[in-house]
């Protein structure tokens, strides 16, 4: 039985980007306002779940051709790399560095290596959550 979900699918196409952008915002804002890699990742996951609900598994895989298992691995490497990078500068493991930079487009911006770590968290959360959902949903 195939019903016509035009409204749902059209709305989803729009809403997906809103949620995704919001999650990116949450992720970047995490260091100063509520949010961070974990929530950001979860929100992105939520957006993808929405896609999965509106379309089917194969379509989503075509639209987002990522291997989410590898994404998890990359995230882990990123997090570990950030943490262990500090030992090359002769400071203890997991010491972060930060400073203000003047960037061409953004003006004066505070950059922080914790952000890279958070990006790792983001990737891991998205990667494993989607891996779980895909493998459970795919088994039917």
């Amino acid at each position: 039985m195939k019903t016509n979900d035009v409204i749902l699918q059209t709305t989803t196409k729009l809403v997906f980007f809103i949620i995704f952008l919001f999650s990116i915002h949450i992720f970047f804002a995490g260091h100063y306002t509520p949010g961070g890699g974990f929530v950001g990742g979860l929100l992105t996951t939520g957006a993808i779940i929405l896609l999965l609900l509106a379309f089917d598994l194969k379509t989503v895989q075509k639209a987002l051709p990522f291997n989410f298992t590898i994404m998890t691995g990359i995230g882990l490497l990123l997090a570990l790399g950030t943490a262990s990078g500090s030992i090359f500068f002769n400071v203890p493991f997991f010491t972060h560095a930060f400073d203000d930079f003047t960037l061409p487009l953004f003006g004066v911006t505070s950059l922080h290596t914790a952000m890279i770590f958070d990006a790792g968290v983001f990737l891991v959360v998205v990667g494993s959550a989607i891996t779980i959902i895909q493998s459970i949903g795919g088994d039917s």
Binding site: H31, Y32, T33, G36, G75, L76, A79, A83, H112, V121
Partner: peptide, 27 residues
């Protein structure tokens, strides 16, 4: 730590170790 959100700074900076292994658990 150069941040404003204490919770997130604790998670990624003060006690980033825990977070590292939590994401390991998740994966």
């Amino acid at each position: 730590a150069g941040g404003g959100n204490i919770v997130n700074v604790i998670l990624v900076d003060y006690r980033g170790f825990d977070t590292l292994f939590e994401i390991a658990v998740l994966s």
